[in-house]
Design a protein around this nucleic acid. Structure first.
Length: 413
RNA sequence: GGAGAGGUGGCAGAGCGGCUGAAUGCGCCACAUUGCUAAUGUGGUGUCCUCGCAAGGGGACCGGGGGUUCGAAUCCCCCCCUCUCCGCCA
């Protein structure tokens, strides 16, 4: 949420930001409404003040003329109050659509303007044609898509046997790495109300991305980020940073992605994710943004998965973001890097929306938030494909073995 | 799902039509006292909107929304939430 004061102070900067981020918001209308809100509010306060002093002078006895006068004041008050509500609703709606300001490091442009920060790891070379993960998954009895489709619909999958152990093992491994930094596990509700989605900045922007429960003010979360922001709405935090690892299933409609990545488990309606959520002092946001990225990279390095880090361009970032890194893993069957994790610094955009404040000593303000994937089920794609051998078996990375009962290789059944 | 109770400041807890932005206690801050700590005393201690250079002024907020009234934290209606008992249940 961009505060009204900031819009008043620098309307041109807000307009420029909208232009760069492709947001169609009428900033002048906001300014006009804001002015009207003030003048209308002043009249309202004036009338209310009159009502107050008048009724205070009343001292019990209600005479006819006095009543008429008071009723007239009340009529005026109702009128002005109704108008105030209209103005505020309109204003709120419009302001809600304003995207966050960008960090100065963000490259301006579309997908093509994304910058490769670094490439890490050696891409495996195979003396056979590497199989795509969905084939390996079937061969090794790890992923059963047809039967999940049978029970649900397309874009669902059954994770089976050792694959579930992989998920658990990875979660444990990542958690053990992050815990000493202060990250605390939270397995939150996967259904949240609209206000929570608004706070995290998913509403009103991506209305269609969440599955909605009929006749309820509840939607399935697309990421535990949503729950973990809703968690602290209206709170005044007295300690920062607050570091969480959100453990949850995530649900996405993938509306508008028909025909895209239909094979395998890259783009699905439901998946598991361990998410790093940071609430921190504004001065520390940059530091934690980098730490979260290091954590993501740590895991991939430990697993020997080649990856690249991308600094995302303005056009490739959702409205709440100030700056975002994506980490993409090498996918041998496709011969390209694909997004595995995503790490966004939201500034105070979300905490302002959710009225999440901090008060530490004499200092008050809105904490900054960072949402960064730890890992999600997508990592299995990279794990299987990069670890595969000619016979379809998959070698488990050494560092992961302790979490897998020392299992070294997953063999075809 | 059925029956009852309740939602007040950072917390606990009064108030149940005007003198209440709200008693009292705890916490917190400042000052005083004090070898240190503890204890004690005095004062202060919410958020938001708005006018003002400032000092300061006006307004809103006692779960949310509507209503009654000259006047509502207090009365009425609707919704949400919490607790207790019963039922059901992984």
């Amino acid at each position: 949420m961009i505060p009204l004061k900031a819009i008043e102070a620098a309307p041109d900067a807000v307009k420029a930001n909208c232009r760069v981020r492709g947001a169609d918001v009428d900033v002048d209308a906001i300014l006009r409404l804001n002015d009207e809100r003030k003048t209308n509010g002043q009249e309202l306060d004036q009338v209310r003040s009159e009502i107050k002093t008048f009724s205070k002078a009343q001292k019990g006895a209600p005479d006819e003329a006095a009543r008429e006068h008071a009723k007239e004041l009340r009529r005026k008050e109702n009128e002005l109050a109704a108008r105030a509500r209209e103005i505020e609703d309109d204003l709120e709606q419009r302001v809600a659509w304003l995207p966050n300001f960008l960090d100065e490091r963000v490259p301006i442009g579309g997908e093509d303007a994304n910058e490769v920060v670094r490439e890490v790891g050696d891409k495996p070379s195979f003396d056979f044609t590497p199989r795509p993960h969905e084939e390996l998954g079937e061969l090794l009895d790890l992923i059963d898509i047809p039967r999940a489709v049978n029970a649900s619909k397309s874009r669902f999958y059954n994770l089976k046997g050792t694959a579930v152990l992989l998920r658990w093992g990875l979660a444990r491994m990542f958690q053990e790495h992050c815990a000493p930094q202060g990250f605390e596990l939270v397995a939150p509700p996967v259904l949240t109300k609209d206000r929570t989605l608004f706070t995290s900045g998913y509403l009103p922007f991506s209305q269609k991305d969440n599955f909605r429960i009929q006749d309820e003010d509840l939607s399935l979360i697309g990421t535990s980020e949503q729950s973990l922001l809703g968690m602290h709405m209206d709170e005044v935090l007295t300690e920062l940073p607050k570091l969480y690892l959100g453990d949850s299933m995530c649900f996405r409609t993938e509306a508008g992605n028909y025909g895209k990545d239909v094979k395998g488990i890259l783009r699905v309606h439901q998946f598991y994710k361990l998410e790093q959520i940071v609430y921190c002092h504004p001065d520390e946001a940059r530091k934690w943004h980098e730490i979260c990225l290091e954590n993501e990279e740590w895991l991939l390095t430990e697993l020997g998965i080649p990856y690249q880090v991308l600094l995302m361009a303005s056009g490739d970032m959702a409205a709440p973001g100030r700056i975002k890194y994506d980490v993409e893993a090498w996918i041998p069957s496709q011969g390209i890097y694909r997004e595995l994790t995503s790490n966004t610094d939201m500034g105070d955009y979300q905490t302002r929306r959710g009225k999440i404040r901090f008060k530490i000593g004499k200092e008050k303000g809105f904490p900054h938030t960072i949402s960064a994937t730890g890992f999600s089920d997508r990592i299995l794609i990279a794990l299987l494909e990069n670890g595969q051998r000619a016979d379809g078996s998959v070698v488990i990375p050494e560092k992961l073995r302790p979490y897998m009962g020392d299992l070294e290789v997953i063999e075809p059944r």
